[in-house]
Amino acid sequence: MQAWAPGRRRISGILLIMKNESLAGYREVEHAADWELEVWAPDLVGLLEQAARGMYALCGMRVLGEGRQRGELNLPNAERERLLVTFLNELLYLLESEGLGFDGFDLELSEAGLRARLEGGKASPTSKEIKAITYHKLQVRQGAGGLRVNIVFDV
């Protein structure tokens, strides 16, 4: 994580959730023991953002109002599924180790990889513990409306 500095609140990205007809969103899928999210978006950066928002929603994270911060994550290029897992793992690590959560996402993909400009701040205590983001049946699928993926979280 780089260049954290206090800043004004700015929420970027689209947050249209819980409706199948929405362009981008996520919803919880029944899973016997762990948690599963179905996530969809028109493109990969949208999918990454919705997956992050969905993960935060699952664990009950809220960004607290004070001490807004901005920062940047740079992740090397990888195939889509690995990039998704790596991105979520980074966010999970920042949440657990530094208590930071994000609600502003400005994501850019290039040949070099993912550049994620993030905005957020201190996170509320979360109600659920996510141990890990798994690769179980993880496959980004192309559909008529864009991309779709199911993610299983170990809890």
Partner: peptide, 27 residues
């Protein structure tokens, strides 16, 4: 322990290719 497993599941994504191991599930 969560981090140890996370680190090696990630690293082994490359290892299976290096050792020619075919998987039915990446986990």
């Amino acid at each position: 322990g969560h981090q140890v497993c996370t680190d090696y599941v990630d690293e082994f994504q490359g290892a299976v290719k290096r050792y020619g191991i075919r998987l039915v599930d990446r986990e």
